[in-house]
């Protein structure tokens, strides 16, 4: 396992949760992302918008450590991804909450049990986390549906369950890939507000979406992805950063 670079740690301690410098990534022979320069900071929401097939999902795979960078430097939660060993990457993954475009659940389990899964993985006993999970269920507005098996939930309920699960272990970095897909505008806005709330506890939030209007919901650092190239559109408003500090 590679030892953490002091410079990376220093950046991380000063709030840079993600820093990409000249990163390329892709699948097989195909390069999808090219020369990415990106930063996500603690207490900020970064919104990455772009058309379909622009590379947004690949970008979230890169940030959630499912896709290794081919070149450049990717430092996520203080760890240089290219140099870290499997255990170090697994430890970083535990500090990342991920809401997939099509979330995968254990379908026969209840939403409650699925939400509790990250806490069970840390070895906590049900009696220790049951109140926390109930709180999350209320926070995402899942209500009584939490006790139903996942296979019986609607699309919006599944999405809320995915968000609750992503937040369960109190992650430092939250990634959401098209979290408003197939939702009504009202539900979509509510989901983005929920995710944005997490900056108040110091987490960094990265949302990838086709919906440009989400930038109006909350103060976000707005980035645009186009054909694998990322560019900054706007910075987060200072008053939001002050609210965090």
């Amino acid at each position: 396992m590679a030892r953490a670079n002091p410079v990376d740690l220093d950046l991380y301690e000063r709030g840079a949760l993600v820093r990409l410098a000249g990163v390329d990534a892709g699948y097989g022979e195909t390069t999808v992302l090219a020369g990415l320069e990106f930063e996500a900071r603690a207490g900020e929401v970064a919104l990455v918008t772009g058309p379909a097939a622009a590379g947004k999902t690949t970008f979230t795979h890169l940030l959630r450590l499912a896709l290794p960078p081919r070149s450049g430097r990717a430092v996520i939660l203080g760890v240089d991804v290219a140099r870290a060993g499997a255990r170090a990457l697994a430890n970083v993954k535990k500090r990342i909450g991920y809401v997939a475009e099509t979330p995968v659940f254990i379908e026969q389990w209840s939403a409650f049990d699925n939400i509790a899964m990250p806490l069970r993985l840390t070895g906590r006993k049900p009696r220790d986390y049951v109140d926390d999970v109930r709180e999350l269920v209320d926070f995402v507005g899942l209500g009584d549906a939490a006790d139903l098996p996942i296979e019986q939930l609607s699309g919006a309920e599944r999405r809320r369950t995915a968000i609750a699960r992503a937040l369960a272990a109190k992650p430092q970095l939250i990634l959401a890939d098209d979290p408003t897909a197939n939702m009504s505008p009202a539900d979509g806005r509510r989901v983005v507000r929920l995710l944005s709330e997490m900056r108040r506890v110091g987490a960094g939030v990265v949302i990838a979406s086709q919906d440009e209007s989400l930038a109006d919901i909350s103060s976000v650092a707005h980035w645009r992805m186009d054909r694998g190239h990322l560019s900054r559109v706007s910075f987060a408003r200072p008053e939001e950063a002050e609210a965090y500090e």
Binding site: R64, A66, A86, R87, A90, N91, V92, K93, K94, R95, I96, Y98, A100, V104, F105, I106, E107, N114, M117, P118, L121, A169
Partner: peptide
């Protein structure tokens, strides 16, 4: 498989 995928996404190592 879905459980393994979920566990992987949540940071479980291959051994876990």
């Amino acid at each position: 498989r879905e459980m393994v995928t979920v566990m992987c996404d949540l940071g479980a190592t291959r051994g876990q």
